[in-house]
Simulated scan of single mutants.
Amino acid sequence: MKLKKMYSKYKDVLAYLVFGVFTTLINIITYWLMAYKLHQIVMVSTIVAWVVAVFFAYITNRKWVFHSECDDIKGIVKEISAFFSCRLATGIVDWLCMFVFVDIIKINDIAIKTLANIVVIVLNYIASKLIIFKHK
């Protein structure tokens, strides 16, 4: 019974972590494909990976993590705008990490991409919980 109560209390966090891992994998795989298979520069690869990951994150966060109840166009547009604005802010954190640590300092790009995504996941959860999908 204690385990069930704990699961009930933290199910959104657990779902967010699971989909956060998938979002991170999508981001890293897309980055790798762009950089290593399509031979794009670091920043182009980073931006494309971010866009793909944010689309995936919105769909999963809306439906399975924060259980959005918005069903009218105005509410959904507001929700999407807030989601993409917050993700743009954390995307800038990702881009800056890649620029500074990969382009300038020359640290391994995949390692920095992974670490930057951990920071971004935490920031995104806070924004989603407190701003985007807050229940009235």
Rank of each mutant, 00 (worst) to 15 (best):
D12T: 11
C70I: 02
K4G: 08
Y31C: 02
V120A: 04
T114G: 11
H135D: 14
K63L: 14
V65F: 01
L25Y: 04
T23I: 04
A15R: 05
Q40T: 08
S128W: 08
D12K: 09
V44P: 03
K106T: 09
E79I: 10
W64Y: 05
Y7A: 15
V77T: 11
D72C: 07
F101Q: 08
L17G: 15
I47Y: 00
T24G: 10
V51D: 01
T24M: 09
A15K: 02
M1W: 10
V100H: 08
A111G: 08
V44R: 01
I80W: 14
N117H: 10
D71A: 06
N124I: 06
T60Y: 02
M6G: 13
Q40N: 03
K106Y: 10
L3A: 15
N117M: 06
V122R: 04
I28Q: 05
L3F: 15
N124G: 07
H67D: 14
W50F: 11
V48Q: 00
L25Q: 02
A111H: 11
K4D: 04
I118K: 04
G91M: 10
D72V: 13
F101K: 04
D94M: 12
W95N: 11
S8N: 15
Y58G: 04
M1F: 12
V100Y: 12
C70W: 03
S45P: 05
K134D: 08
M6P: 03
V52D: 02
